[in-house]
Design a protein around this nucleic acid. Sequence first.
DNA 1: TCATCTAAATGACATTTGTCATACACAGTT
DNA 2: AACTGTGTATGACAAATGTCATTTAGATGA
Lengths: 201, 201
Amino acid sequence: MIRVLLAEDQAMVRGALAALLTLEGDIEIVAEIGRGDEVVKAALSTHPEVALLDIEMPGCDGITAAARLHAQLPGCRIMILTTFGRPGYLRQAMESGVVGFLLKDAPATQLATAIRRAMAGERIVDPSLAMAALSEGNNPLTERERSVLAVAKGGSSIAEIASSLALSEGTVRNYLSVAIQKMGVRNRIEAARLAEQKGWL
Amino acid sequence: MIRVLLAEDQAMVRGALAALLTLEGDIEIVAEIGRGDEVVKAALSTHPEVALLDIEMPGCDGITAAARLHAQLPGCRIMILTTFGRPGYLRQAMESGVVGFLLKDAPATQLATAIRRAMAGERIVDPSLAMAALSEGNNPLTERERSVLAVAKGGSSIAEIASSLALSEGTVRNYLSVAIQKMGVRNRIEAARLAEQKGWL
DNA sequence: TCATCTAAATGACATTTGTCATACACAGTT
DNA sequence: AACTGTGTATGACAAATGTCATTTAGATGA
C-alpha cells in the first residue's frame, strides 16, 4: 500500500479525491488536510510516502508547505496538484523539492498513475505545462517590482502602495512604470494581472 | 438508482466527484461534461433526474446552462455545486430554476445527501450561504453600471470600455463614478473587484 | 399635452497615474 | 581610487481618471 497525504482546501474536492484514490487497491490515504500550515505536522505523525498538495490553501500556500515538508521529511515524495498552470509556480515548486506537478485539468485516471510513478522515483510534470514553462522564459521582474505589483494587485492607489512598502510615491511610480513596460501592458492593473497569471508574483 | 448528470470543467475534480458518487449504491452518473454549452445536449440524450453544475465552465457558465436546461427539461432537478459563495449568484441561480446550491467547501458526505433530498422535492441551500445572501441585501447597481464594470474588470482603459460598449468616454466615466460612490471604494479597480466578489456582475 | 424620468452625452476641473531625466548613496569590481 | 550597477528619490510633464453640473432625446405616464 502506498501511503498518501492529501492537502486540499475545498472539503468536497478533497473528499472526492480521497474516494477516487481509495478505489485504487494499492493506495491508502493516511491524512487529509485542509490547510497549508498543518501539512508538516500531519506528515510527521502519519509518515506518508507521497504528499499531494494543492497550491491555494489557507494558512500557507502549497509551495511553501512543500519546502517545509521537504526539509523535515526528505524521504516523502511531494506532488503539487493544482488548478493553476502558471509556469512560475512550476519553477518555484521544483526548487522546493517537489517531484511532480499535475493539473486538475488532467484526466482523473492520471492521478493514481502519477502517484505510482512518483513512488518509482520518476519526476512527473504535466507535459503541456512543461512546454509552457520552457517557452515562457524567466521572470523578468526584479524583487522590488514584484513587491510593488503584489500590493498593486489589490487595487490600492499609488499612495497606499508607497506607505505600505515605506517607499516614496515617485519610487513606486517608477517601479510600476518599468514593470508595465517590461510586460508590454498599458497600466498597473493589467501588469498585476499578468504577473500573477504567470506566477511571477 | 438516481440518474445524475455532472458538469464540471476540471477533469480531475469531475472524475473524483464521479468516483465519490458512484460509491453510493443508489446513485448513477449518466453523463459527465466539461463545458457549459454541452449540458443541454447531454441531458436530452441521457435524461438525468438530477443535474450537478459548476458555475465556472468554458462555453457558458453554469447558471446560464441551468436556465437553458430548466427550459428544455423542467423535470430535471438542477443543483449548483461551486467554489464561489457569492450571494448574487445564489439569487440568479434560484431565478434560473435551480433547486439547490452547494459549496465545494462543504464536507463531501453532504453531496449524496443533498442529491437525495433534491430527489425528494426539497430545496437545498448551504446554510452559511443563505445567511450571507440575506445579510448582503440587493444589488445596488443599475444595468449600465454593471456592464461597464464587467468590462472594466479586465483592466481596460476608459476609452476601450467606451468603444467596446459603444458609449462615449464621458458617459463611461459617469457610470464608473456613480458605481464607485455607491460601493464606497476609491477607484474602478476596487469597484470591479468588489462587484465581482459579491456576484453583482 | 405636459410633466417626469432615464440613458446618454458634454465640458470643465482637480486628482491620479505613467513617463522620463536626473541625482545620490552604497556595494561590489577592477 | 575609479567604475559600475542597483535601490531610492525628486521634479516636471502629459495622459488618464474621477467628479460634477448641465443638456438632449426618448420613453412613460398623468
